[in-house]
Design a protein around this nucleic acid. Structure first.
Lengths: 361, 361
DNA sequence: CGGCCGTCTGCAAACGATTACAGTTCGGCA
DNA sequence: TGCCGAACTGTAATCGTTTGCAGACGGCCG
């Protein structure tokens, strides 16, 4: 016989519709369309709740979907709509509880809104941040959340991210080129330092965070201004450190408490550093808060379990995350120009602070 | 010449190639192809380092790519290859440093291998885990990493994940239906308890973790077996708690130390719980380790800053993460059947343990 | 010198969705 | 009765890749 079977242009399509179902293949929109006796366009319309689909068809398609266990492919959709239903989060340090509590807040609302979450760690390195931005641009995520401070390469980030909606979280209070949901590092540090001053301290030491980061510079500046605002010129030799790494805090504390005239109180720019510092203060034979008071910022969960429990300025981490994600969603939806939000922080007085040992002047 | 240019099936394509470039549109593989004067297939082949591309063409395409700043679209690729260049991580609790250090390890090797990371928090709820599995299946990620223990709905997970390569991290040492990179909870707990026994303790209390989780049950079982192995029948009234939540540990510790005959040592199934417990032990007026010794498992960073520094069994968290990701990559590449790996843990003796107060028997 | 094979390249069909656009009904109104 | 528009549905192009297939070219072997 004439073997010239008509040339099959799309040879594989129809054959496998119901067969392949038996085998391991996820149902596609075409399978649904075929089983429901409609076109893929119609299925797509019921999927996206378009108007102009008759109740009868809508129902039939829905039941086929349920029966087949069909789940739409985010990547198919992404290719078509040109944005993937995912958002990206950039974290400076995944091992730091502060940031992860923020991330947790973000994740919870992202999940409830149907967004997948892509997470990357920058290790506080600008190069990593740029790589992340490129990745997000490649995937064309619906939005990006940058948490924590960076070294101010925001313009580079903006260029790489293109038009992708972006909001920053826990940066400095003002002057960001991205919409921001933040706390005021400066005010927090000032409040902490003033608490020390009100307690009667004058020789107050400070451990510095990374001076290239917003948190580092503004928290230190808050300390300085609080001092000067109360007529105390901060002793430069009483400031040490220069990084958010625990080891830096340990060294700085050694330096501060090892000198003949140690400060009566030390301000730390983060609980983590304070916890590390307290360890060496005690090892050096000082009692907290009797000999030296310790105060810091963030209020991570472990601040309550330390000995003594840490007096610190509470950072509303989870709220920062949820609020940040919500404003991102608003931006994605094109709703209003995103207004910056700065959340308040409260000093929570526990037991690492007390009046200085001898109140002699 | 014969003007019969081959019929253009896709009429709109060529028109916008260089125009649209000026406007805001990322370069696509077609733009590269056109600019280099080759077909998209060829561009794809140089992108993927296929053989059979002449050196000259390869070079030309590469330079065009560089010049255009072209970056391939992972979603286009995903649609074509049917797996996205991303892996998924499921974490029980994003605020817990143990898990995040593992995640950090995973992330670092994922990044170096070009995989994006999708992260979800399960909050230790089976329903969340299942949702995660569905999401991963929808995206068709290249692989999935499940970290920490769950409540044993692995078969459900397997069903939803289909053929997606999956490895579990930090589960129980044996009997997982997924390839596993773990530590031996049982042995760790046993070693910790034995340290207490060797110090001379007999009345050893235990705080229990979630009894529905592997970590919870095996860590408690290790405690029990260590006791019995040394001829001590564990007093059931000296076991309290039943969750990995801090509040549970606080209550349990109150219960244990509030009784007329408190234990001389307490075994905690995690550092977090131990840190919380130490706080109440001290608040109750006991000295650590003079009156009561404290030991636990994990060795999170904060274990070194507590007062006293915590004696605990070190869990190689980062290695767990990197190793887990590496075996996942092997599975993705179809390399060998993944062998289970169980990493060793070492007891690190700090200062929360000492012989019991009165060594009278 | 003819055939074959290895190298290189292009063509076009997938992958799974969305969405203009173009019908087709059908009811209502002039 | 004829027409119009609203309601509904299908067709097919499109998003950005990969890849099987086939064609072209050149060298080598018999």
């Amino acid at each position: 016989m004439d073997d010239a079977r008509p040339l099959r242009v799309q040879p594989t399509r129809k054959d496998r519709v119901f067969v392949a179902d038996t085998v391991n293949r996820r149902a596609s929109i075409r399978d649904v369309a075929q089983a429901a006796g409609v076109s893929t366009g119609t299925v797509s319309r019921v999927l996206n709740n378009h108007a102009y689909v008759s109740a009868e068809v809508r129902e039939r398609v829905r039941s086929v979907i349920a029966q087949l266990g069909y789940q739409p492919s985010p990547v198919g959709r992404a290719l078509s709509t040109r944005t993937i239903t995912a958002i990206g989060i950039l974290i400076p340090d995944m091992a730091d509880p502060v940031f992860m509590v923020i991330a947790q807040g973000i994740e919870s609302v992202a999940k409830s809104r149907g967004y997948a979450v892509m997470l990357a760690n920058s290790d506080r390195e600008p190069a990593q941040e740029l790589l992340f931005a490129d990745l997000m641009a490649q995937f064309n995520v619906a939005g990006v959340l940058i948490v924590g401070d960076s070294r101010r390469n925001d313009h580079d980030l903006r260029r790489r991210l293109g038009v992708i909606p972006t909001v920053v979280i826990a940066r400095r209070a003002a002057g960001n080129i991205f919409p921001a949901v933040t706390i005021d590092h400066y005010l927090a540090a000032k409040a902490a330092t003033e608490h020390l001053i009100e307690l009667g301290h004058r020789r107050i030491g400070a451990v510095r965070g990374d001076p290239y980061s917003d948190a580092g510079t503004y928290r230190f500046r808050g300390y300085v201004d609080a001092m000067q605002g109360h007529g105390i010129e901060p002793d430069p030799s009483l400031a040490a450190g220069g990084s958010f790494a625990m080891s830096s805090s340990v060294d700085a504390t050694h330096h501060l408490c090892g000198r003949p005239d140690p400060p009566t109180a030390i301000f730390y720019p983060s609980d983590e550093l304070a916890l590390g510092g307290m360890r060496v203060i005690k090892d050096l034979g000082f009692r907290i808060p009797n000999d030296v008071s310790v105060i810091s910022i963030n209020d991570i969960p472990f601040a309550t379990t330390s000995d003594p429990p840490l007096t610190t300025v509470h950072m509303p981490a989870r709220e920062l995350g949820t609020l940040g994600m919500q404003t991102l969603i608003d931006m994605i939806a094109g709703r209003g120009p995103a207004r910056d939000v700065v959340l308040g922080m409260d000093l929570v007085i526990r037991h690492s602070t007390a009046p200085p040992p001898s109140t002699a002047g």
